[in-house]
Simulated assay, not measured.
Amino acid sequence: MTRYRIRTRPTQPFAGERTQAIPGRGLEFYELRGYAQGDEPRFIDWRAYARTGRLYTRIFQAEAPARFTFFLDGSPSMKLLGKQVYAERVLRVLTDCAKSEGAFMWGGGRYRGQLEPVVQGPSLLMNLPRPSGVTVLLTDGLDELDWSRLLQKLRHVVLVQVMAPEELSPGFTEALLQDIEVGSRMEVGEVEVKGYQAALEQHLLRLRTTARRLGSYALLRVGDPIVPALLRQGVLEER
Rank of each mutant, 00 (worst) to 15 (best):
Q152R: 15
R239E: 03
L145C: 12
V93Q: 15
G133T: 11
V193I: 04
T69I: 00
V93F: 10
Q120M: 03
V188F: 12
G171L: 00
T11R: 05
I44V: 01
S148M: 07
V191F: 13
G183C: 09
V90W: 14
D143K: 14
R185C: 14
R67F: 08
N127T: 11
Q120A: 05
G102K: 14
V118D: 01
F60C: 03
G38L: 13
C97V: 06
V235A: 06
F71D: 01
F68L: 10
Y30N: 04
V90I: 10
E237N: 00
E190H: 15
G34K: 08
R206N: 06
L91G: 02
T8W: 13
L94N: 02
V90E: 10
V85N: 13
A15L: 11
R212N: 13
K194Q: 12
G195D: 14
R221S: 13
G108H: 05
E238G: 05
R58K: 15
V193W: 05
E40N: 02
L230F: 12
Y217Q: 04
I59F: 09
V134T: 15
G24A: 08
A175G: 02
A198V: 11
T2P: 06
G38A: 02
E144W: 11
E167S: 04
L137F: 10
R54W: 06
R42N: 01
T173I: 10
P225L: 01
L125W: 11
M163K: 05
P13C: 11
V162K: 03
R9I: 07
E63D: 02
R7M: 07
G82R: 13
R206W: 13
A87Y: 09
L214R: 15
H203Q: 04
Q233N: 00
G53Q: 00
V93N: 09
S184E: 13
S132W: 00
V93C: 09
P165E: 06
R112D: 15
A64I: 12
M186W: 11
Q202F: 09
G109M: 03
T210A: 02
D143P: 09
Y30A: 09
R92P: 06
F70A: 14
F29P: 03
A218K: 08
F14A: 13
V160N: 10
T95D: 01
R185G: 14
R25C: 08
K83R: 02
E167Y: 09
E63S: 00
G34P: 01
V182H: 12
G108P: 04
P117D: 04
L177M: 00
L219I: 08
E144M: 05
K83F: 00
W147F: 12
Q178W: 05
R130Q: 04
R3W: 05
T8L: 14
A199I: 03
T8S: 06
A199V: 07
R206T: 13
Q197N: 01
V235R: 11
F68H: 15
